[in-house]
Amino acid sequence: MLIYAVCGAGIGTSVLLKANVERALSMLGIEAEVKAVSLEDARGTNQMAQVILATPELVEKLGGIPSEVISINNIFDLAELGEKLQATLS
């Protein structure tokens, strides 16, 4: 399974989000490849991720993408990440 952590630049928020998504996934015992990508890359890629995570302002800009999009308010909150990932993946 492929998961994208998205931010505007692809170097800051998305990298932090990726680190914590990986941690949340390992706590849930779920294996997946997580990539930090920019908004443009998430929209322009041919390699569709099953799940995309981003902060709310960017989720609005991800409309029309066939992936499941999860909106994350607090990227440091492993409980929020874990709950939302589990709800989407189960």
Binding site: C7, G8, A9, G10, I11, G12, T13, L16, L17, S38, L39, A54, T55, P56, E57, L58, K61, N73, N74, I75, F76, D77
Partner: peptide, 23 residues
């Protein structure tokens, strides 16, 4: 310009912003 274009998406947690732009 990044803030102007995309809104306050880099406010990533309650009370916390990480201001940045692409390399």
């Amino acid at each position: 310009a990044n803030l102007e274009a995309l809104g306050p998406y880099f406010v990533v947690a309650p009370g916390v912003a990480i201001a940045h732009a692409p390399p």
